[in-house]
């Protein structure tokens, strides 16, 4: 389709920026309360015993409501990792990072699911699946979401 380009309206920008306010719910509230106190709180399925961290209200495998809280250690294992050279920028496209960031998917000891956070410390070349790490908390973080600051090798 050939044209000389639109002369009058190049691209209609939709004026509304949607802002969604999600309630974190009782389970994530308790998870964040735990983090403030330096604890990792997960939940256990009453049927299969699967431990969810971060906590999930429902065990989809058993179609059951999780109700037993368990405290998990800050130590875990890297299930997978990636060295990020980019991030999703303000415009929704991939923008180069000034310095690469190592991102890990970490399964805490006693948990069956993973948390995703930065890993600091190791030379990215030395990062590996199965690497043992410990969580570093920053209780002075401005946002409650950032209390889990990153993981370091142990």
């Amino acid at each position: 389709m050939e044209s000389d380009g639109l002369q009058n309206v190049d691209m209609v920008r939709i004026p509304a920026v949607p802002v969604f306010n999600w309630s974190v719910g009782n389970f994530m509230e308790r998870f964040f309360d735990g983090l403030k106190g330096g604890k990792f709180m997960g939940v256990k399925c009453p049927d299969c015993g699967r431990v969810y961290l971060p906590p999930r209200m429902i065990c989809e495998r058993c179609f059951a409501k999780n109700d037993e809280w368990v405290e998990l250690p800050p130590e875990g294992t890297v299930e997978s990792f990636t060295l990020a050279q980019v991030k999703v920028g303000e415009d929704g496209e991939l923008a180069d990072l000034e310095a690469p960031v190592l991102i890990g998917m970490v399964k805490h000891e006693g948990a069956d699911t993973c948390l995703v956070a930065r890993i600091e410390g190791p030379d990215p070349e030395e990062a590996s699946v199965g690497m043992r790490v410990t969580a570093v908390l920053d209780k002075s973080a401005e946002s409650i979401l950032d209390i889990l600051s990153h993981y370091v090798p142990r």
């Binding site: 980019v86 991102i103 995703v116």
Partner: peptide
């Protein structure tokens, strides 16, 4: 409630975790 706010995951970084695993 967690992952979206932390700015680390998106479809490419998630696929990278899948690829590495």
């Amino acid at each position: 409630t967690f992952d979206r706010e932390r700015g680390l995951l998106n479809e490419v970084s998630a696929a990278a975790l899948q690829a590495r695993a």
